[in-house]
Design a protein around this nucleic acid. Structure first.
Lengths: 336, 336
DNA sequence: ATGAAAGCGCTAACAG
DNA sequence: CTGTTAGCGCTTTCAT
């Protein structure tokens, strides 16, 4: 299955030059005469020559490509982040490759190692729900491999982070529900281990407190797989049904749509009796029934910021980087 | 920014062996003594040695990774196809990398060249809406580079194809609408160039004919970017509003949700007066309002079949492949 | 301004 | 069973 391409050698031979001259001409080196450059360029063009990036990477330890690792691309938030990343990457001539973990720590590690191994210049990642051990990431970072985390970030790792103001978002949601008259506000959320879970929970609790609302553990339901598995959602919603909650704050994209689905499947009669506010970046919330209030993260911008930080770090000659944590505001959109 | 790793040479030196012996031991070659293998493996393990896949690819022209190119990952259908592909790929130890074209022919080409150049072993792709010239793909295929097309496939290219029975799906949709009593069935669809557009249009026309319904060009609206751009949708739906259509068959995921959105934005009063059937693989159609009937493609299975064909082609020693076109049935799901 | 030669990390004849 | 050597395609000293 060999399909050969033109190589620098071939060009050199055809033109009676040395490979090094061709290489330099191709890279527009100052030490090559205009004349030679023209000839080489023209011939390369004619032959449709393409440099072998693998060979170049092996030599240069640089690939002009960056990797993205998320749990699911079938997620409005993540796909928008990815679009943001791409917008920056393409502008700076980096190729982007994407891979998913499906919330599996094993797959996450596989993906990281694959992308690292293949000389990706850096990684942008949101941790999987299952991830608890991030030491291998730390050691990669220590080796000097640039990784920027977004959304679901690890604690205590020397790296850039870009996150939304999840606590405030949670607070806003509860505040909104309280204003609408809710007395018992439930919280449906993802894996306990994730940073976003903790932050949004804090906002929720702060909101309850501010409005002197019931704090009841029974009102808080965790879904280990963030709603990826329908069963966990069914169970959570069913359990909630016994708590006579009248409002709910939901902590993620899949959880929000999943909650609505379970309501349709099992509690169609009660739809409309519960006020719903949830984190979601769906662009089609206005066609959802029942109506929900959406907490949006600035996903596209988040991707952009993260990509900028990553590329900046990649291109920083000296590794004395001051790591920053960028926190972007959420917004709330009420639907009528 | 150099971060060195252990290489085979390092191990060889440390163990007083030759690099080739180490290489062979690592790859569990039959010509290496059990003893040596054990020592090498143990040391490699201890040093956390990772083979450099770049070097290996350069040598072997094989990377055990396959590329996927779709227009948008933020699309239920595509993300499900990708999941199907991954399920096969992981089982056969191939890594998967994904990239998107956003319906741009230029970006498609960039992505293809990037993935091809980086020794991806093969490609799975659905063409972008903008793509008209597929000669560069043909020449890649002629060189022996395996590409399997799915969903949006080019005509006349010697390659495997995996598609849904779009014509039948279109027919089913119209048949369903006719049964519901629709007299004037509109059709909202994507780029004229795409195979799926043509096939679904055929099904639509066949359905109209079978039920002796109005055939009216004004009832058919094309969106060049398949609903990615909201403006094109608004225009199409607005134009349709003048045709007193009473049913509509919509030809894609984004178009379907987009149509619903425009209805909410501009024609909220008319919602419910039009019966809607559309191609969509959304898993949450049951929370949409208004209610729609969904034509589903077996996306996951499509991904699996395509991946199987690709890997089979990659691993076929001799290139005498008989190309096949797999056609999978669609299903229709009525929502109440 | 150009060429020769070495080397990135790995594999694979070919020798022994 | 193990070592030597060459080479994948490219870049890059170091000569000239």
């Amino acid at each position: 299955m060999a399909f050969e391409n033109y190589t620098i050698k071939d060009i050199a031979k055809a033109l009676n030059l040395s490979p090094s001259t061709v290489s330099r001409a191709l890279r527009d080196s100052y030490e090559i005469s205009a004349e030679t450059k023209k000839i080489v360029l023209a011939y390369a063009e004619k032959m449709n020559y393409r440099a072998n990036p693998i060979a170049r990477s092996l030599k240069e330890r640089k690939s002009y490509s960056i990797g993205i690792i998320v749990s699911e691309i079938a997620n409005n938030f993540f796909s928008q982040v990815i679009d943001g990343i791409e917008s920056i990457a393409y502008a700076k001539n980096y190729q982007v490759v994407i891979s998913q973990t499906h919330e599996s720590a094993d797959r996450e590690r596989l993906n990281v190692e694959h992308l690292y191994g293949r000389s990706t210049d850096g990684l942008l990642m949101a941790l999987s729900a299952e991830t608890s051990d991030v030491r291998y990431l730390e050691s990669l970072i220590e080796k000097g491999f640039p990784i920027v985390f977004f959304d679901r970030v690890p604690a205590q790792i020397p790296a850039h982070r870009v996150i939304a103001d999840n606590k405030q978002g949670g607070y806003d949601a509860v505040h909104y529900l309280a204003q609408r008259g809710c007395k018992r506000v439930a919280h449906l959320t993802g894996a306990r281990t994730l940073s976003i879970t903790k932050e949004r929970l804090e906002g929720y609790q702060m909101g309850l407190q501010a409005h002197a609302l019931d704090m009841d553990d029974a009102l808080v339901k965790y879904c280990q797989y963030g709603g990826l598995q329908h069963g966990e959602l069914q169970q959570a919603v069913t359990e909630l049904a016994d708590t006579d909650y009248d409002g709910i704050f939901i902590s993620g994209d899949k959880l929000t749509t999943g909650y609505l689905q379970v309501m349709h499947e099992r509690y169609a009669a009660q739809i409309g009796q519960v006020a719903i506010a949830g984190f979601t970046n769906s662009k089609v919330v206005n066609i959802f029934s029942p109506t929900i209030t959406a907490i949006r993260q600035p996903a596209f911008e988040m991707g952009q910021r993260a990509a900028e930080l990553l590329i900046q770090q990649i291109e920083a000659k000296h590794s004395g980087v001051d790591f920053e944590t960028v926190v972007l505001p959420t917004t709330m959109i009420e639907n009528k």
